[in-house]
Amino acid sequence: MSHEVQIGSFKVGAGNRPFLIAGPCVIESEQLVLDTAGKIAEITKSLGIPYVFKSSFDKANRTSIKSYRGPGIENGLAVLKKVKDQLGLPILTDVHTEEQATEAGKVVDVLQIPAFLCRQTDLLIAAAKTGKVVNVKKGQFLSPPEMANAVKKVEECGSQRIVLTERGSSFGYNNLVVDMRSFPIMRSFGYPVVFDATHSVQLPGGGGTKSSGQREFVEPLACAAAGAGVDGFFMEVHPNPDEALSDGPNMVPLHQLKSLLERVMRICDAAKPRS
Rank of each mutant, 00 (worst) to 15 (best):
T209F: 11
F189H: 05
A148E: 14
R181P: 10
T198C: 08
S159I: 08
V178S: 06
E219D: 10
S182I: 06
G213I: 01
L176K: 13
P145D: 10
P220A: 13
V151Q: 10
G168D: 07
T198M: 10
R215C: 10
P204S: 05
D179R: 08
S182T: 15
G205D: 07
F171M: 10
G227M: 12
M186L: 15
V134K: 04
G213A: 05
N135Q: 04
V218Y: 07
E219I: 10
K153L: 05
L203M: 14
G206E: 00
G213L: 01
L203W: 00
G213P: 03
R187L: 07
A228Y: 11
N174P: 02
P144D: 14
A222S: 10
A197Q: 01
G227F: 14
D196E: 07
K210F: 10
Y191H: 12
V178T: 14
A224Q: 09
R161S: 14
P220R: 07
S200P: 00
R161C: 00
R187V: 06
D179A: 09
I185R: 01
V201S: 05
I162F: 08
T165D: 02
E156H: 14
M147S: 05
I185P: 04
G139V: 02
V218W: 05
P145Q: 13
V218P: 01
P192N: 13
G168Q: 10
S212W: 00
C157V: 10
R167W: 07
E156L: 13
G190V: 01
R181G: 14
K153M: 05
S159N: 09
S182C: 14
V193I: 14
V134M: 03
V201W: 00
K210P: 07
I162N: 02
F195M: 13
